[in-house]
Computed example of a mutant assay.
Amino acid sequence: MATGDLVPTHFPARRAAQVALHYLNTRHGSPFRVFGLQQVHKATAEDVGTGGRKYSLDFSVTDYGSSGSVLRCSADVLFPRTEKHSPPDVQLRCEGLQQISSSPEEEAFYQKHISPDSAVSALDIPDSYGYISQDMKPFWHLARVAASFIMLRESSENTEYNMAQVANVSQQETSEKQLMLKYHVLLHDFVSQEIIHWKLLSSWSPDGGVRVLETEWQPKCPHATKPPSAN
């Protein structure tokens, strides 16, 4: 693979930026805040001895939640060289990110859905026409954030993951002051064009953020025992 300056629009730079994006969403995503990659402005790559391969990036992201704001970010993404798959290591800096805090929308959403009488369940978000209702958008955003934990963990130099669809979501009863959501998500790997199914259990509150409590890969073949990254 090439070292030195990379073409920002080409796959190696975009793939590394996508990994940094997953990291950003795991740290700062919410029902009304989820980030998408807008543009890679500059990228370089270097081999770090036996430690792996490091990508240094300058890129911008868009908040596709309620604000629509654009942030300029820089990141170092290290893909380790190990016998078994290891998640990439990400060091990220974004201008203005520390100014983002919990919003009144998030608090209202939390108060509306924390009651067991308001338990939510839904199928196929978006539907076959690409439509997501306004009521379901916060749950779609939470799925994107929760799936980012999986996509970050499973990423390598040979993948580029995005979430394609929520097959189903159901709110779970809990004694904790958290929204507890069970998801079945479909992840798309741009490189292999494979759709990969995962089930996950996640929680969210305005103070606690998103946590992923359980993940379970759903194999297409009944004889498969490991997700693609473990092969």
Rank of each mutant, 00 (worst) to 15 (best):
T62P: 02
Q18W: 00
A119V: 12
E176P: 09
D76L: 10
D135R: 13
L123W: 04
E157N: 11
S30G: 12
V166Q: 00
D135K: 08
L201P: 03
W140E: 05
K182S: 15
P126G: 00
N168M: 12
L71E: 03
A230I: 10
S205I: 08
K220Q: 11
E194A: 15
S118V: 10
Y161M: 07
E160A: 12
T225F: 05
D89C: 13
P222Y: 03
Q18G: 13
K226S: 13
Y183D: 06
S121W: 04
A164K: 07
W140R: 02
L200A: 04
Y183A: 11
I114D: 04
N231W: 13
P12V: 04
D58F: 03
E160C: 15
S69V: 14
E46K: 12
C73Y: 00
L152A: 09
E83N: 15
G4P: 01
I196R: 05
L179E: 06
S155V: 03
V212F: 09
A143W: 01
D124K: 06
R153A: 15
P87E: 13
F11Y: 10
R27C: 05
E107I: 14
P88H: 04
L71K: 02
Q165D: 05
H41W: 12
H188F: 11
S118C: 12
I132A: 02
P206Y: 05
Q111H: 13
H223P: 00
V210A: 07
E106N: 08
G4W: 01
A164H: 05
C73W: 00
F149D: 08
H223R: 14
G130T: 05
K226C: 11
E194K: 15
S203F: 03
D47Y: 10
S203K: 05
H141S: 11
G65D: 05
S170D: 10
Y23R: 12
S74Y: 00
L187F: 08
Q172Y: 07
R211F: 02
E107V: 14
P126D: 02
K199G: 09
E46P: 01
T174Y: 09
E106G: 10
P87G: 05
P219M: 10
Y129L: 15
C94F: 02
K137E: 13
T3G: 08
G51C: 09
L186R: 09
C221R: 11
E105W: 01
L21Y: 00
V191K: 12
Q178C: 09
Q91A: 14
Q38S: 15
V145P: 01
K84F: 13
L71A: 06
S101L: 11
S229R: 10
P12F: 03
R27D: 01
L24Y: 00
D63R: 01
L142Y: 06
L186K: 11
N158Y: 09
I196D: 04
L213N: 06
L123P: 00
G52Y: 02
A122D: 05
G36P: 00
I100S: 02
D124I: 00
I132V: 09
H184F: 08
V34K: 03
Q178K: 14
D76W: 04
